[in-house]
Design a protein around this nucleic acid. Sequence first.
DNA 1: CAACAGAATTGAAACCTTTCAAGAGGAGCT
DNA 2: AGCTCCTCTTGAAAGGTTTCAATTCTGTTG
Lengths: 346, 346
Amino acid sequence: MSVGERRPPGARSASVKDVAATAGVSLGTVSNVLNRPERVSAATRERVERAMNDLGFVRNESARALRAGKSRTLAYVMLDATNPFFTDVAQGIELAAEAADLSLFICNSDNRASREDTHLGHLQQQRVQGILITPVDPEADSLDTIARHGTPLVIVDRIRHDESFCSVAVDDVLGGRIAVEHLIDRGHTRVAFVGGPLSIGQVDDRWRGAREAWAEAGLPEDALILIPTTALSVSEGRSAGERLAGLPSRRRPTAAFCANDLIALGLLQQTISSGRKVPGDLAIVGYDDIEFAAAAAVPLTSVRQPRHELGRMAADLVMDEADNPRHAHQQVTFTPELVARASTLG
Amino acid sequence: MSVGERRPPGARSASVKDVAATAGVSLGTVSNVLNRPERVSAATRERVERAMNDLGFVRNESARALRAGKSRTLAYVMLDATNPFFTDVAQGIELAAEAADLSLFICNSDNRASREDTHLGHLQQQRVQGILITPVDPEADSLDTIARHGTPLVIVDRIRHDESFCSVAVDDVLGGRIAVEHLIDRGHTRVAFVGGPLSIGQVDDRWRGAREAWAEAGLPEDALILIPTTALSVSEGRSAGERLAGLPSRRRPTAAFCANDLIALGLLQQTISSGRKVPGDLAIVGYDDIEFAAAAAVPLTSVRQPRHELGRMAADLVMDEADNPRHAHQQVTFTPELVARASTLG
DNA sequence: CAACAGAATTGAAACCTTTCAAGAGGAGCT
DNA sequence: AGCTCCTCTTGAAAGGTTTCAATTCTGTTG
């Protein structure tokens, strides 16, 4: 195909066979040029390479994968592509995949089990080398099905109780703890935990950590109240703000620890726009330390998770499971860190 | 393979051949069950389906793709995975792909041409059915190379001058225009355009639209000033805010139109935290209407682009180019819309 | 009962790459 | 000349699916 000419869609592209014919060598030699160039004499190599160029040869990954029995691809099934936390994790995974010269499928389950299943089905058909997933439900049977078929799978930012998979997560109990300890240090004695549903393991853990810290400080149990939300979204944060504002002032918390930054931002916005001050009337701690946390009207104190490291470690684990015959599942836990900003320090 | 048993990694999984043997039929029949079930008698079909279940058969997409000469996969090469605008576009694409039962590769060039090239190379090897891309440089040669190989390619949210590809974009000149018209309507007579670099086509278009509206309103040319930034990020917005604040008050604009919401949020934050009021001291209009725009301390007036529709249309175009032999390239332009909020209305 | 139509099923070939045992060719040594 | 030892190259087979022409089977009609 001469330069500048567009191949009509559907037309067959050059294969190793065509290259071999053009260069006047055998198939095997072309393959050697591609995979073991040192075994081919310089002259032949050059001839083959010229033929490749002339024909615009592009390796066919499907054929490679078929032959090899597996593809050179990893996949990450995200829970929510609009949540910056997950896009950062994805970036970490991407870097690791790139370093290993693997392609990465990114899918988005959008929090729906049915979409997750569809994606998992496709990925299995693709014979991806490994799957990283933040599942809608870490106990779901569909994950076992994948494993039963022999596809390495690592759970990201969730934990499964029976440890039958590798997983990477951040210690959320500890995260809840340091958030509330910070508020206690700042002198707060009435605090709200805003978040939900508690069926999300994470949220429950953060809430547990919060209560532990509270109890250890010897504060009265009923002064730490739960403001439940139905999702971890900005709008739920706003609505929680209204409920908070509706409480009688002597029972109203002076600080809120939110299960994630989206809720915190919603709460922050609702608080400010209804004329109350942050942190004067209400101190706020978020969770995740997304980029917008620092960029909020009142920069948000937040619990930071090592997102890139999370992704990178998950990718490393899944590659180990794929390559290393003596692989053993492990549960890796990262330590979160409090980033104090104006929303609690003012 | 009996239920509950994990296939050792690397072990071969059941193929149509195995299914055929188990069900006591030929290969072709199994394939017919999969692809043309109506041609197979009910009894046989049932027998084959049971065999598939028993063996845990999963179609091998590589083999399918190899045989078919193309894969059942679309790809979107994003410019910046951390920008919510692009994740929304991706969501639109995803919906369209799902409806057509295609898988979607999402890649992130992270604004780097080298990564973009790597991704394009991989995608070409995968023989994806079509590529959607928001390119680092719409004029880049690498795009032509793809097209020359016969892979349909649609440019998203950018335009190429020679119209040699399909593209979908939003009319940015119009967007700039309506933003500034809105500010003029609100009585502003000194306005800043904050954004850059102008080498980004989009940014330049918005700036042009702004000037056109300004000129048409008969306002003095030098009362619309340009505050250039080196990137479209929150931190650049903050720094622009400092520069704005440094201007002598009689020349200081009373309103700013920002090239995107990230800049606007940075500017908003800097303005508020330095004690000035929005919109009292400075009215702000953003661009993109990302979720956080509405959730900002002062909800942000912004120019909304039909992001999902953008993605969906792009996917439709690329599928048309792949399937329809009489496909003709087209440049689709969407109309942006102003969403007025407190940051200009207060 | 023979012939036939239509439905159901079969078997082989093709897609492209990689691998590997085997072969060819050349150089150096005795 | 005959031999070994190298390096380089070859050719065939395998991997899983789909397609399609060819074949077998079932039931009906004359």
